[in-house]
Design a protein around this nucleic acid. Sequence first.
RNA 1: CGGGGUAUGGCGCAGCUUGGUAGCGCGUCCGCUUUGGGAGCGGAAGGCCCCCGGUUCGAAUCCGGGUACCCCGACCA
Length: 589
Amino acid sequence: MLLRMSTLFLRTLREDPADAEVPSHRLLVRAGYIRRAAPGVYSWLPLGYLVYRNVERIVREEMDGAGFQEVHFPALLPREPYEATGRWTEYGDNLFRLKDRRGVDMLLGPTHEEMFTLLVKDLYSSYKDLPLSIYQIQTKYRDEARPRAGLLRGREFVMKDSYSFDVDDAGLERSYAKHRDAYIRTFDRLGLDYVIVSAMSGAMGGSRSEEFLQVTEVGEDTFVRCDGCGYAANVEAVTTPVPSPIAWDDLPAAHAEDTPGTPTIETLVARANETFPRADGRAWTASDTLKNVVVTLVLPDGTREPLCVGLPGDREVDTKRLEAAVAPAEVEAFDEADFAANPALVKGYIGPGVLGEKAASGIRYLLDPRVVPGTAWITGADEPGRHVFDLVAGRDFTADGTVEAAEVRDGDSCPACGGSLHSARGIEIGHIFQLGRKYADALGLQVLDESGKLVTVTMGSYGIGVSRAVAAVVETSYDRLGLCWPREVAPADVHLVATGKDPSIFASAERLAADLEAAGITVLLDDRPKVSAGVKFKDAELLGMPTIVVVGKGLATGVVEVKDRRSGDREEVPVGEAAAHIVAVVRAR
RNA sequence: CGGGGUAUGGCGCAGCUUGGUAGCGCGUCCGCUUUGGGAGCGGAAGGCCCCCGGUUCGAAUCCGGGUACCCCGACCA
């Protein structure tokens, strides 16, 4: 393939676009790879589409290589299947809905679990047909509340989605593992710097879920990693190491004290140190207090119920973690009206005494895992201006269970090895789920097993953001001059710059380009006449082909210049050997 | 859905405080010169100044109301 700058449909921008901040967005627009068509909707220009197709090709090769079969569903879908699984309403405003001329509801697919499940149900009915893994590469539509960062979060985007179908859990485990391996190969080929983190399966149901996160500051997902071992988890899925219970034989009895004007943890700690100093001389801190945070859960059917989370006073409730823990319910703040409806709760002085399904308030009470039996706390006495000291978990109060809802902080203990966790950000480039039987149940996907009994199929769901991966690749490979494509996704192998006014220079460049093309190398030839060398060099750096070849003033001494875009290394090569040399450079990686 | 910011030629911006014929750089087109780091000179095209209303002799500018976009948060298989 030979592309000519003289005729290429391309306009590079000299300055950064004002409405783009993250590097991938800024550079893809500036270098003329994409243009915004509408909020969160982008058009691909020739160079961008070449990159996109390369990424898609790699994804497809790895899927096919793993033995998965490609199918293709429509993006325009009927309402009924989504009604059957409840997602017509569950998806809410995020679903692009439309009506046909007869007023029949349709939608633009946000994901295709229903369609895949129904297709398999249509055709297959025996355990002998399974396992099966099929996939598609398809445009998806989600009416995001806030699209951002160019290709990273669009309302239209391309996703590769696969689904596995197995008769039993062991089969699902194998299908999941195959996808996991295929994803590792895919992202390695794309040159991404990623981690695999444990994730919550959340509302999707199922037992196991992992995300592939490209590590970068501009990512939207927060995850934690352990310094010591390989543990990594999405912040929603981090588990707290549970301390051993402590014997309470020697602990003093609980005693309520007057602590007027202490509705917050700060005021409480200050008052405690002033009026009730500890016997051992150490000062009270927020972590000695037990904070009881009440929220309202909104269930999918609209029912509202209060929930109280008890956690050490030095930590806040992380709403995302709490929501992940109580999914599919959503979490809302507990407001004044809610307090009025629950007179047992004394705002600012809530204690375990009234909490729990069997206690005065009847409110379900869940504890942070750190609050193990034998730990002693200062907490609300359920009377205005009073707190209880030396209230011991297990001895003086119990709860309805535990919940992972406390914020995760840098330095927290690793649940795997006890080391220290630290947080980082990432772009979700892939996600693999063990869905289980949620969709098969809802849509009635069953097969006959060996004994002739109907069994519900168990499924996995696996996604790669293909258009997002283009942006993710950029995030790993750019510098202050512009893009630096990895060879496998670059629009062309070589950017061949002809600079000078002597016709013999252009003739030499043409010959070299033809030789390279004949050898199977893709070439972007800058054959623009009357364009200064500086402009051509800047464009070559901005556009980011992995190898830049300059045919110019060196020709007088019989050499051309070969530069590596990423390292900046350059060497001079005799014209006669140039083609062979460049072929070797390109093939080396 | 909350908070902040912005809206002026293809791109990046000034002008607005204090109302008076819309400006700069880049890009584009023509001519000449130039050709190894976003060239020089001369000429040219291109603008409902986001929209609607108000004040005024006169509004890009002042006032009121919208809308859109960007960023942060909430949300996000």
